[in-house]
Amino acid sequence: MDSHHSVIKKHDPRPLAIQVHERISSDIIDGNFPPGSSLVQEQVAALYGVSRTPVRDALTQVAQEGLATLVPGQGYVVNDLTDKDVRDVYEVRYTLEALAARQACGKHSPAQLIRLRAMIDEFETLDPSDAQALFLMGSQFHAALIEPCPNDYLRSTLAAMWAHPIQRRITMTYRQGPHHQAKLADDHRRILEALKTNDPETIVEVLRYCHDPADERSGPGA
């Protein structure tokens, strides 16, 4: 545990357990708590300048989300991000997004189509080495893509998936650089053109490999 961590801000009005959970999740995602790190309640509490109670609650939630595992005699240990984790998240997200995209296709207003194009243009101006910014803009595009989907539960489920800590952690393993950025921009432009021609089959096919972990993941096993 190093100087990259900081104490919880006292002026934040949200419940302390929520703040601590957010901080622990972010520190795991950002690599400040690397895989195999032990998250001992007392040490984490001291690190963030809080009591043990919100830390205990936050660690329980972190474990439920799959970021850490409770190991007897060792406390919580940060999990590694496996290829199976990546494949499982992608499989569920693609299946749900394909369903939502089919339901949304043909229902976008001219203003929504203009907004989608503006998102792609902005995406191309981002720093190609900034994985977080690329992912944020990409996820916003995908949310706008399914915005006309009439199934509220389907849209909220997909929003929760994009915001899930495991999904956010996957973004930190994305290959970064101009090629990655150009590939995603091209995928998004193909989706937009298919929307304009009411072609759900092309949209679903592009979604099959857009943000595909087999293509985007870096490191061993990529």
Rank of each mutant, 00 (worst) to 15 (best):
D2T: 15
S6F: 12
I8E: 10
K9Q: 15
K10E: 14
D12F: 14
P13C: 11
L16D: 02
A17V: 13
Q19C: 10
V20M: 11
R23T: 11
D27R: 08
I29W: 08
G31R: 07
F33P: 00
G36Y: 14
S37M: 15
Q41Y: 14
E42I: 14
Q43C: 09
V44A: 04
V44E: 09
V44Q: 07
L47D: 12
L47W: 10
G49M: 04
S51W: 09
V55D: 03
V55Q: 03
V55I: 10
A58C: 02
Q61K: 15
V62E: 08
A63N: 09
G66E: 13
L67D: 11
L67T: 11
A68G: 07
L70D: 13
L70I: 15
V71Y: 09
G73K: 04
Q74E: 15
G75L: 11
G75I: 12
V78N: 07
N79P: 06
N79T: 09
D80L: 13
D80V: 14
L81F: 14
D83T: 10
K84D: 12
D85N: 13
V86P: 01
R87M: 09
Y90T: 00
E91S: 12
E91N: 09
E91P: 03
V92E: 00
Y94M: 03
L96I: 02
A98F: 02
A98D: 00
A100N: 01
R102L: 02
A104T: 02
K107V: 03
H108Y: 06
S109T: 14
P110F: 04
Q112W: 04
Q112P: 05
L113M: 06
A118I: 05
M119L: 12
M119R: 11
M119S: 12
D121Y: 08
T125V: 05
D130Q: 01
A131T: 08
L134Q: 09
M137R: 10
G138T: 09
G138F: 07
Q140N: 08
Q140F: 07
Q140S: 10
H142P: 04
H142S: 03
A144Y: 02
P148L: 02
C149P: 03
C149V: 06
P150H: 04
P150A: 06
D152G: 09
L158M: 05
A160Y: 11
M161C: 11
W162F: 13
I166E: 06
Q167A: 14
Q167E: 13
Q167C: 13
Q167V: 13
R169W: 11
T171G: 07
T171P: 01
Q176H: 03
P178T: 05
P178G: 01
Q181R: 07
K183H: 06
L184A: 07
D187T: 04
H188Q: 10
H188P: 00
E193Y: 03
A194G: 01
A194F: 04
K196Y: 07
T197S: 14
N198W: 00
N198Q: 08
D199T: 06
P200R: 00
T202Q: 07
I203T: 03
V206W: 02
L207V: 01
R208T: 07
H211V: 08
D212N: 12
A214Y: 07
A214K: 08
E216V: 06
R217C: 06
S218R: 02
G219Y: 05
P220G: 08
A222D: 06
